[in-house]
């Protein structure tokens, strides 16, 4: 593998995936059909995964596809199908023009403020640190090693707590999703 860094290649793809991501997000927000919206969201996630890879978070990129796009969005689609929401009669849910304008204005305001707040200038090029991380690929453990190191050493407690959280969520989802049966009538 060629470890040299080609800025143009990098930038082009960055912008490509970025624009596709934005476009997909816009489309996602404006679809009437929930299925269509879900699929556009999946697209956004794929773009983001690509960006993660480019930002030297390979593991994150992988699990973005596996977990987010592959599990969470699938659950969403399951529920959409389950509730049979594709009928046109239920699809008229986008607010009227006034609401859209207001929401757009608010969004722009939010954006402007975030832009104003992040006044710090970040370097446009990869820092030496980033370049070193890129070279991590050839190290033993590969690119996963730094993350694993941080996750299982420094943030072990958070990791364990997350597992408990998942357990709780499973239990909660099962309880909530249960159909009320004869056993509950007592």
């Amino acid at each position: 593998m060629d470890n040299t860094f080609h800025p143009l290649f990098y930038s082009f793809h960055f912008y490509l995936f970025g624009l596709i991501g934005i476009a997909s997000a816009l489309l996602f927000v404006t679809r009437k059909s929930p299925v269509a919206a879900a699929l556009w969201l999946v697209n956004v996630m794929f773009c983001l995964a690509a960006l993660y890879l480019m930002l030297d978070a390979q593991f994150i990129g992988a699990i973005q596809v596996l977990v987010y796009a592959g599990a969470i969005m699938v659950v969403f689609l399951f529920v959409v199908m389950l509730l049979n929401l594709g009928h046109p009669s239920e699809l008229a849910d986008i607010r009227g023009n006034g609401g859209r304008l207001a929401a757009g204005a608010v969004g722009l305001a939010l954006l402007a403020e975030v832009a104003v707040l992040t006044r710090a200038r970040f370097p446009a090029q990869l820092t030496p640190k980033a370049a070193a991380a890129l070279a991590q690929v050839d190290q033993p453990g590969g690119v996963i090693a730094p993350i694993a190191d941080a996750l299982f050493r420094e943030h072990l407690l958070a990791f364990e707590l997350t597992s408990i959280l998942l357990l709780t969520a499973i239990a909660g989802a099962v309880v909530l999703g249960r159909k009320r049966g004869a056993a509950d009538a007592r």
Partner: peptide
């Protein structure tokens, strides 16, 4: 919620 967040951010801005 969102309006509140915008307000707080504007205070900082």
């Amino acid at each position: 919620l969102v309006l509140g967040a915008v307000a707080i951010l504007s205070a900082f801005s």
